[in-house]
Amino acid sequence: MKSILVLLLGLILFTGCKKEAEPNKENETAASADSTASGREELKMYEMSEMAALMEQMYAENMMLKQRIVSGDTLGNFPQHFLKIHASAMTDESENDAFFKEQAANFIKAQELIYKDSVNAEKHFNDAVSACVKCHEQKCGGPIPRIKKLYIK
């Protein structure tokens, strides 16, 4: 059994590491025409939706805000572009439902409180992170482990 597993693993590694010759310029256009003619789609670069890009920006800014709260630095002002959460185009527009709108409002309220009530900034910050997690539990669970790294412990 062990030898079969080793043989199978070796076969996978051998075939997976096979290097194919790179096509030259003349063959490249012919190969491109062949792939189009055979019905295969060409690879397309993933483009983030407005909402995904905004959430990436909010994540980065909240990582910096977390450090300022922990170190006791001044917090500055609420980032007004966070309000775009209500209007940004989503990857799947059907996800912009009543639940999302309620969670987005909860997130914005908690986020604004961080700046208005800096004495309790840590609590408000964690409330904002919880709003993100709660929404992502229903909508798009992939980023939850990353979002949870924002919590101030």
Score class of each variant (00 low, 15 high):
E28R: 14
H124C: 12
A33K: 15
A98C: 02
M90K: 11
N24S: 13
K66F: 02
N126L: 02
K123Q: 15
Q111H: 09
N27K: 14
I114E: 01
A128M: 12
F107M: 05
D92R: 10
K25R: 15
C17I: 01
K139V: 10
A30L: 14
L65V: 06
M64D: 14
Q67P: 09
A131F: 02
I69E: 04
Y46P: 14
G72H: 01
S118H: 09
N77T: 11
K109G: 07
K134A: 12
H124S: 12
E28I: 09
R40M: 14
T29Y: 09
E112C: 04
K66L: 06
L7P: 02
V119N: 15
F78K: 02
E122H: 01
G141P: 11
S49Y: 08
A33C: 05
I114D: 00
D97P: 04
F100R: 04
R40Y: 10
L54K: 06
A60F: 04
Q57V: 08
L83Y: 05
A21K: 14
A53M: 11
K101N: 11
Q80T: 12
S71I: 01
C17H: 14
K134R: 15
E20M: 09
V133Y: 03
E28V: 08
H81C: 04
M48T: 12
G76H: 04
E122T: 06
E50I: 03
M90P: 03
M45P: 06
I4S: 10
M51Q: 05
I144G: 10
V133H: 02
K123S: 13
N120H: 11
K44F: 01
L11W: 08
M45S: 08
F100V: 00
L9E: 05
N27S: 13
C140F: 08
H136W: 07
K101C: 05
A89T: 14
A52S: 14
G72N: 07
A53D: 12
S94P: 04
C17A: 15
H81Q: 11
L54G: 03
I144N: 06
N106A: 15
K139I: 05
L7K: 11
K25F: 12
L113W: 03
L150G: 01
E137A: 11
E41Q: 07
K19S: 15
Y115S: 06
T74R: 11
V6Y: 09
N126G: 10
D127Y: 00
N27P: 08
A33V: 11
G141R: 12
F125Q: 02
